[in-house]
Write a protein that binds this DNA or RNA. Structure first.
Lengths: 214, 214, 214, 214
DNA sequence: TATGAATGAGGATTCATTCAT
DNA sequence: AATGAATGAATCCTCATTCAT
């Protein structure tokens, strides 16, 4: 009903577009509702497509989910610049990405739910998505360790743990904003919170630590 | 695992013990798997009891879940001392509770999953558990605001946001430990991490803020 | 909790009374709700007795139902006076019984539902109660044929069919009153309707028929 | 019994036919057995279809039941000619419908059970079907009041009660035939009984009443 | 390529019944 | 005699998936 067959080419009644629509609808539902409470019927309905196409394009609900997770986690990674050396300006960019993620008006296309919630919600279900999840987090941690943790902090476990704590901090903020959308933390737009978060981040990043990390 | 009735009198056919076993099995499954992926059949099987007893003792799966959440969230609250005045030593106790929650060897009876995960996992499902979830978090925030945030910080939104950020920090740490159980943050037992977390907490708690908390 | 053991006799903690209470509770529920929607638990609760006693005293739910049906159908029969000869005054009594059954304030102990509804509701379920039902109706028909149908009507099928139609008339009135309790027929207390019903009955009972009854 | 697709085009995989089969099977079971004793599994089996299709086509067991009731009650109504004025010939038609309903060979497709039994059997279960039931009866009563009750009977309650009693009479006959299928009333085909019923009907319809219909 | 009809497995729930005490 | 804990079968419903067209 929505499809005007303006295209005469027999091949592709616009399979790509359909696929894309399905993927997007899936992303939304999975992010907001979680895996189980999302039904393929609903996804198909949202995408204005037939259920069976989910099988055709993605094989199964689980595969579709995996693909969504892949997409989302890729998004969460900063830039996967492979070098161990930090580039100038990379810190800036990474922090900006993280802080932007805290803005209340972001993620409209995800149904106003931070995509990280998708990562947090489902755990231990299947090996594939679990791996993806971990990869994503690890990649984020690596980026932070490389370009945010101060070069003054000696190489070793300490650097790593600091990076992990920074990620933890942002994760916690995302979660709390999500769960208490009416509280101050969520309401207090941008400025004050952002500054304070940056302060904490810098403390974690810079201050020479005394701890031997067990 | 089969029912170590080592204690006093093995009640008649021991409804209490059965109820307890069901509750514990439910707690485990709900915490680790979340609501949907937990089936009543599995709970009953774990508890070595008949499914119908879930209805008998709890009314429904949802009620059982609610009871688990209640129990868990009660536990998560520090002490619900009602006064608005902070008692001496309360800060100590509260921080200890929070920090203990980060220890890797805790939560054995929850299947080695931090019970907070139960609170985080499920969102937006039904009003009842949502409410419980929020209550739990809000109660924690209130406790922190009362007894951790420094009296030096002026009354007002600022105090509240600081408390929220502290809770966010701990939440993030719990989540990260849960998702990356093999990483340093999870492995680095106690000392170093604990100290650093305390540092951050103090910064959040004490430092006179510059932000106006719009 | 409700039972004061004022009775010292070891035998009979008043089994009879319990049995009676169960039977009465069952009658009410079965009459008002029908067989399926009546649960043994509810019966037991109404009777303030333990469920298991239903098995003890009646064997099973079905048996209990059968017993209720027996009791009710016995009640529905006029007097099972066996003779084929009608006694003087019997017509009067029988009609009175039938007409009384139409009074709105009768059947309080049945939950204000005409016990005949119990007979009508469940059909074809099991042979036992079906037989009881039929017996009851047939007995009623026989009574009417003997003592209401005018002696002037020649012996034969005609007499019988007339009796059946009289019973049908009363049955229909009961049903309609039950199903439309707010309609005029139900509201129009006693006098007018009663008289009209009597008129119809007399027409069915007395008027020499022309029909050969196939 | 297996699907006599003798008609035109055997639709694709023929959803309509399946739907129809389900509806018919449901009608039979509901009519003969009542709501509770009818299981969706049995309906599906009778219709040689999958249980899930009941959900697909009707939403739920209750909806299916409602649809059956609607269908049946529609059938029971005479013609829902809306005018308050009676058309000539309408009485004829209505009485014929009613009397035809008494014929033993009718209702083959209902499992030889008068569809009115469906209406009578279930009472007080749920508001929806209760309403349908009442509507059906009330509609029938209204029709009778309009086109059977003699114009000579003054407007007012009296007319209404007369109509109700006529409906009651037919109802009783249906019930008795159903419950005693081997008795004379059921066996006495057509002529005699029909005539007598018409006599009673006329008496109810025409005779100037003495009762004030308080 | 796309459609939607049909399937089957699995979930929560409900009850009558049985069995220790 | 009476209690109430435990059982197992059955019911409705929900979904992902498969199969004709």
């Amino acid at each position: 009903m929505a499809k005007e067959a303006t295209d005469n080419a027999p091949r592709r009644r616009d399979a790509d577009a359909t696929r894309r629509r399905l993927l997007q609808a899936a992303r939304r539902r999975f992010t907001v509702l979680g895996y189980e409470r999302t039904t393929t019927r609903d996804i198909a309905a949202d995408a204005d497509a037939n259920i069976s196409l989910i099988k055709r394009y993605f094989g199964s609900k689980e595969n579709l989910y995996a693909e969504v997770v892949t997409e989302v986690t890729k998004f969460l990674d900063g830039q996967p610049s492979e070098g161990t050396e930090s580039e100038p300006g990379e810190e800036q960019a990474l922090l900006e990405t993280l802080l932007n993620g805290l803005r209340a008006d972001a993620w409209a296309e995800y149904g106003h739910t931070h995509p990280w919630m998708l990562v947090l919600r489902q755990t231990g279900s299947d090996p594939v998505t679990d791996r993806l999840r971990r990869q994503s987090l690890l990649s984020g941690i690596a980026s932070v360790e490389r370009s945010v943790v101060s070069p003054g902090v000696a190489e070793g476990q300490s650097r790593r743990v600091r990076a992990e704590m920074i990620i933890a901090l942002y994760t916690g903020l995302v979660v709390l904003r999500e769960m208490l959308p009416k509280e101050l933390l969520a309401a207090a737009q941008d400025d004050g919170v952002t500054e304070e978060v940056l302060n904490l981040t810098r403390q974690l990043a810079d201050r020479p630590s005394t701890w031997p990390a067990s």
